[in-house]
Every structure is written in structure tokens, then in C-alpha cells.
Design a protein around this nucleic acid. Structure first.
Length: 124
DNA sequence: CGCTTGACAAAAG
DNA sequence: CCTTTTGCCAAGC
């Protein structure tokens, strides 16, 4: 067979990428956040942070993924500041106990790895 | 089929 | 803190 076209979108199947990304996002504990690049890395797709944003946008609402727990590498929400989406994401995060320091989140403090620390020592 | 977009990231100035 | 530049890659047009 001539496979010259390289099939950018594997029609044969074998394209778990979005599935794996969704699973990685679903695995973020309540009250924690991860940046896009980290989610990509956990999904086995290092360097493909942009694909994570695409996957979230394409995710069926039925999935009820914790999409709000994914922010950019600067700890900031990646929607326009005045948008509804940004407001909703911030509201959801604050409701889970994630604190914003002047518009941004301390990614190190609210990483899943520190979830136990916060439980034992409390925030801050 | 090539050019543009975008829920990104890291580095540099 | 900010902006610009570069790399990245799938979708959309």
C-alpha cells in the first residue's frame, strides 16, 4: 500500500490522544490546578500543550471534565479577562479553595503534589 | 492544498 | 511587570 499521505488524522483509529488528555484532566484532584503543558506530559504527549486546549474545547459537555483546573504556565486563565468563560473558571476554582494572587495562581502551591500538605497544614 | 488560528510555552529584552 | 519572538501542531477556511 502506498502510505505517502502520512494520515495526519489516522482514519484507521489509533488516535487516543484526546482520550488520554481527557483522562489526565479528569485526574486532577479538587482544589488543584495544572498547566496545559503538564497535562500534555501526563497524557504522554510532551510538548503538545496546545493540543490540550483543543481537546478541552472539543470535549463533550456530557463528560463534565474539570476543565477549570487547567490554566496556563503563568498560572493565569487562558480566556480573555472580561469573558464569561474566564469568570466561570475563576469562580469554580475559588469555590474549590484555589486562591488567586492578583489575577494569577501559584502553581506550585496548588499542584496535586501539595494537596496533602494543604490538608495537613492548611492553605498558606 | 497552503495560510491562518489558537483554552500554549519558554526565552529574551 | 510588560512585549516580542520562536517553536509547536491540529483544525478551519
Amino acid at each position: 500500500m502506498s502510505e505517502k499521505t502520512k494520515a495526519t488524522a489516522d482514519p484507521a483509529g489509533e488516535d487516543d490522544r484526546y482520550q488520554r488528555i481527557w483522562e489526565a484532566v479528569a485526574g486532577i484532584p479538587t482544589g488543584c490546578v495544572l498547566n496545559y503543558g503538564e497535562v500534555a506530559r501526563r497524557a504522554g504527549l510532551p510538548g503538545k500543550a496546545r493540543l490540550v486546549g483543543r481537546a478541552l474545547g472539543l470535549a463533550p459537555k456530557k463528560m463534565a471534565l474539570p476543565w477549570h483546573r487547567v490554566v496556563n504556565a503563568q498560572g493565569r486563565i487562558s480566556f480573555p479577562e472580561d469573558s464569561r468563560k474566564a469568570a466561570e473558571q475563576r469562580r469554580r476554582l475559588e469555590e474549590e479553595g484555589v486562591e488567586f494572587e492578583g489575577g494569577s495562581i501559584d502553581l506550585d502551591r496548588f499542584s496535586p503534589e501539595r494537596a496533602l500538605d494543604r490538608m495537613l497544614w492548611g492553605p498558606g
